[in-house]
């Protein structure tokens, strides 16, 4: 059985159990127990390995929910705003006004395409300088009218191209890193798929950082790391492992705040369930920040990033 077939089996088992439990609460208890045991066995079989490389592949899965899939399921009245008012509009980053549980919020996020045409249009989620500038413009707009910001991260990285360099890819990201720190409204970051280096961080400076269970966040792709450090492409798995790019690793290093669980075989099997699980973490995170003043939000965000890193001072105990 393939993973998808197993996932189907799990869903039908779940509904069978529900139905049986509802229809015959007492008499068929043993049957329900048998089905439950079967369900547990299937879930174990399908649960993705904790291996870093497997998670990397899941994070890139072509059926994985993208930013607009979550927006469609969790937000109302999404109204997109385009363009950086400097050069162009980058389809690899979307931005727009929306309502979330009654709150007006600004959504920004990387967007990948589902079919070939869409993928090309979205440039495979590789954002360009105008994308980062559009995102910041949208965020400044939200700040001006005191609306919180929810950022979705899902990119292989910022686009490496002649045009992107000419238009200041590095400057665009650097500027965002500084200006996102100034925002006097809540910023919640959700890493939903690939967190690809500077291209991810460029819209990733927030008060609270959520990460989906099978998302990855890394300084360089395992492929890039293998090419540079091992000088070949045979060590992507070792590189993925060494880079500590999974959600549990990053929580340990205090890079992210919370891990959002995913459906048993990964978010790609059930977009609705994945969205509900994200909702379960996103809503409380947002509502806990709404009471804070602009100054408090800035200070909290500053202190959060200020404390990141691993540094020791040379042992001074031996000094006279």
């Amino acid at each position: 059985m393939s993973d998808d077939e197993i996932a189907d089996k799990i869903r039908s088992l779940e509904s069978d159990i529900d139905r049986l439990a509802r229809e015959r609460p007492s008499s068929r208890g043993s049957e329900v127990e048998r089905l439950r045991a079967e369900l547990r066995r299937l879930r174990e079989a399908i649960r993705p390995g904790s291996k870093a490389w497997e998670r990397t592949l899941l994070a890139r899965h072509e059926q994985r929910p993208y930013t607009l899939d979550y927006v469609e399921r969790l937000f109302q009245d999404f109204s997109e705003i385009h363009g950086d008012r400097r050069f162009g509009d980058d389809p690899a980053i979307v931005a727009g006004m929306a309502r979330y549980h009654g709150h007006h919020v600004m959504v920004v996020g990387h967007q990948k395409g589902r079919d070939l045409k869409q993928r090309q249009y979205r440039n495979f989620g590789y954002a360009q300088p105008e994308g980062y500038r559009k995102a910041l413009r949208a965020m400044k707009l939200a700040e001006k009218f005191s609306r919180p910001i929810i950022a979705f991260i899902d990119t292989p990285g910022a686009y490496p191209s002649v045009g992107a360099e000419e238009r200041g890819q590095a400057e665009a990201i650097a500027h965002n890193l500084r200006e996102m720190n100034r925002l006097a409204v809540p910023v919640i970051v959700c890493i939903i798929g690939e967190g690809g280096s500077g291209g991810a961080l460029g819209i990733g400076v927030g008060n609270h950082i959520l990460m989906m269970e099978n998302a990855v966040y890394t300084v360089i792709t395992p492929e890039g790391c293998s090419a540079i450090l091992w000088k070949d492409q045979d060590h992507v798995e070792a590189a993925a492992e060494a880079l500590k790019l999974t959600a549990p690793d990053l929580q340990e290093f205090h890079i992210i705040d919370e891990i959002v669980p995913e459906p048993p075989a990964g978010a790609q099997t059930d977009h609705k369930a994945a969205a509900e699980m994200l909702d379960g973490k996103l809503r409380p995170a947002l509502e806990s920040l709404l009471g804070m003043t602009g100054a408090q939000l800035r200070e909290q965000r500053y202190q959060k990033f200020r404390s990141m890193g691993a540094v020791v001072r040379l042992n001074k105990l031996y000094a006279p």
Binding site: L177, N181, T218, L245, M308
Partner: peptide
């Protein structure tokens, strides 16, 4: 790893 990346934001 990401500890390096995050220095950019810090």
């Amino acid at each position: 790893g990401v500890l390096s990346l995050i220095q950019m934001a810090k």
